[in-house]
Structure formats: C-alpha cells, structure tokens
Amino acid sequence: MESFSSKDMAMQAQKKILSHMANKSMVNMFIDDNSSEIMDELYRVSKEYTGNRTEAQKVIKDMIKIAVKIGVLFRHNRFNAGELGLAQDFKKKLHQGAMTAISFHEVEFTFDKTVMSEILTGCRDLLLKLVNTHLTAKSHGRINHVFNHYADPELLTKLYDPDGPFRPNLIKICNGLNKLVEEGTI
C-alpha cells in the first residue's frame, strides 16, 4: 500500500520554503519583537567577537531556521508524547539558562563560564533529541552550530566582562530575557 499523505507533503514543503526565507521579515512573522531584539544583540556580539559579519549572520540565520522548523513541527502535531516530554525538558532548561544568564548579569562576581556553557550544551542536546527523527542532518548541524557558538567559554567570558565592550549588549539581552521570563515564554 502506498503511504502518500498530502498533509505530510504540505508540512515538508512548508519547512523547505520557510528555511529558504529565513530573513528579517520572516523573523517578524514567526518570532516576537522581544525575541527579535535579543537576536539582534546576539548578532552584534557574534559579529564583534568573531570579527566576521558573514559568520555572525550564519549563526543567527541558523537559529531562525531551527526555530521556524520546530514551530512548523509543533503546529502540525508531529511530536509524540515522549518528544513532548523532551520539549518540556528543553523549555525548563532554557528557562534555567535565562534565569542563570540574568543572575550572572545582576549579581557581580557570580559569573561562571563553565555553568553557562554546560546549560547551553544541555539545551543543545535536548533539542537534538527532540528533533532527531524529524529534521535532517543539516538541521542538526545548524543546532550544533548555534549552541556551540554561544556556549564558547571565551565568548561568554568576554560577554560577561563588566568592563568589556559587550556590556551594553548584555544589558539589552538580559532585559529581553527578563521580559520573556515574565511573559512565561521561556
């Protein structure tokens, strides 16, 4: 028996089209203004840290593509009960990461690059498990690219340097994270 499903085909087409259209105007359609502002700050940090505009754009573009694809999967109810449990674990870990990032910013001399890096790699691992059977190896590579980039202890150390050039970016990132936490988004 042939296993054809127009619903599956529509979802595949949607994921493919949206992944090719991941630009600023598409971000606004799928990602709220606050999250978009956080991403803008993350882009600025990445650009300055790497000294490479193209690499910074690629990291953010990968982040957007992954967010959009996961959104499509949720909208089409593609996750089973076990995967929905992983999604909850991911959300909890992301919330923990946001609270830790904010705390490290607000309480002087508490920043620990190892703790922050471990939380981010934990988020990466949960997300990879969640999408394991739903997304391609290329998408898994995008997830690794994003989380490995921001979990880099050297980048984190520079970001949290109280006298460093990223201080204004960190303030905006943490203000945005605070809003997301207050709204219950993360």
Rank of each mutant, 00 (worst) to 15 (best):
E108N: 07
G71A: 07
L42S: 08
I70Q: 01
G97Q: 13
T110V: 10
A56T: 02
S103D: 05
I38D: 06
M63G: 11
L86C: 02
K92R: 10
S46N: 13
K91Q: 12
I38T: 10
S103C: 09
M99P: 00
L73A: 14
F109W: 07
E55K: 15
E83H: 12
T50K: 14
L73P: 15
L94C: 01
G85C: 07
V59Q: 13
A101I: 07
I102H: 07
G82P: 02
L84V: 09
G51R: 00
I60G: 03
L94E: 06
M39L: 14
L42P: 00
V107N: 11
V59K: 11
G82M: 01
Q57V: 00
K61A: 01
N52Q: 04
H105P: 01
V107S: 09
Y49M: 04
I66G: 06
G82D: 08
I102W: 07
V45G: 08
E106N: 10
F109I: 10
K61E: 07
K92M: 04
F74R: 14
I60H: 00
T100C: 05
D62M: 02
K61C: 03
H105A: 07
E55P: 03
S103L: 13
D89Y: 03
Y49D: 10
R78I: 00
K65P: 04
G97V: 05
S46E: 11
D89F: 00
T110M: 15
V68Y: 11
F74M: 07
L73I: 08
T100D: 02
F90D: 00
G85L: 10
R44F: 06
R53N: 13
F104R: 00
E41I: 08
L42C: 11
L86Y: 12
K91H: 12
F104S: 00
E108G: 04
R75T: 09
N77V: 14
D40C: 03
F79G: 06
K91R: 14
G97S: 15
V45K: 09
E48N: 06
E83D: 08
G85V: 08
M39Q: 07
D40Q: 04
H76T: 08
M63D: 06
V59D: 10
V59M: 08
F111Q: 07
F109C: 12
H105G: 02
K69I: 15
Y43R: 04
I60S: 01
M39P: 04
V45N: 05
I38A: 08
G51C: 04
A98E: 10
R53I: 02
Q88W: 13
T110H: 10
K61S: 04
I70T: 04
L73R: 13
K47N: 15
K47W: 14
V68P: 12
I66Y: 06
V107Q: 10
L94Y: 02
N80P: 03
G82Q: 04
A87V: 10
V68L: 07
V107G: 11
Q57G: 05
Q96K: 15
F104E: 02
K58V: 09
K58R: 13
K65V: 09
I66D: 05
L84P: 07
F90Y: 12
V107R: 03
K92G: 00
N52M: 04
E108H: 09
N52I: 03
